[in-house]
Nucleic acid binder design. Structure first.
Lengths: 104, 104
DNA sequence: GTCCGGCCAGATCAAAACGGCATTGGACGG
DNA sequence: CCGTCCAATGCCGTTTTGATCTGGCCGGAC
């Protein structure tokens, strides 16, 4: 399972359509189709129901969607938090971390 | 940023040593070294201090470590939750999801 | 001062993953 | 039956990842 697969999944779930999701992701349709399939294989359950009108979330997909969004948000948060800690704030900054920052 | 990079990071943080982390991850040392570097490049901040005795977490790394563990746990949770929803439970199961499951 | 051991990082090559294009196969409407 | 829309597959080139080998850096032993 990769973060790309999770992003693909969320987009397909939102669009209900692999082709449109691929456009939003700036990749071709087969790439999205394959990654969704791989994700389902790894989890061991179908996440979507394939219909001639597009893709519909199955119950496992609905559950996974909530988690997937949380994961993507957590990833962004993690990077932001590390970056924020990386910049050297001015002395006497309001962050509680300022007092436990070593000199090095 | 990839989940592998996050796993590599957590292991190196726990071991304080790229070589030992690589052993635990069943990959070679340079692979871990490169992924850690790539992660730092993407975030835009050094996460470790390189010393001749090993790797020590810098403040951004300490912050990132908490988030990283949460992400990995969330990924496992997501897969487990989807799988749990994927199995068809017996009628009258105690899960509240049972009542909103379509016939499939 | 010199040698040795541990550790991280770079270069190079091979394997795997990924994506794109072209195409197939299934369902629906005219 | 034919055109349209959608997802899935085959094939190929590109990108990414990892393994191996090698070098540089530092500390300890003597």
């Amino acid at each position: 399972m990769s973060l790309s697969q999770i992003r693909y999944f969320v987009t397909v779930a939102e669009e209900g359509n692999v082709g449109r999701a691929a456009q939003r992701l700036y990749v071709a349709q087969p790439a999205v189709s394959r990654q969704i399939r791989a994700l389902e294989d790894e989890i061991g359950t179908r996440l979507f129901s394939r219909t001639p009108r597009g893709m519909t979330l199955l119950p496992p997909g609905r559950v996974f969607l909530d988690h997937a969004r949380a994961i993507l948000a957590a990833v962004d948060d993690a990077a932001d938090a590390a970056r924020a800690e990386g910049v050297t704030p001015p002395v006497g900054a309001s962050s509680p971390a300022a007092s436990r920052r070593p000199p090095g």
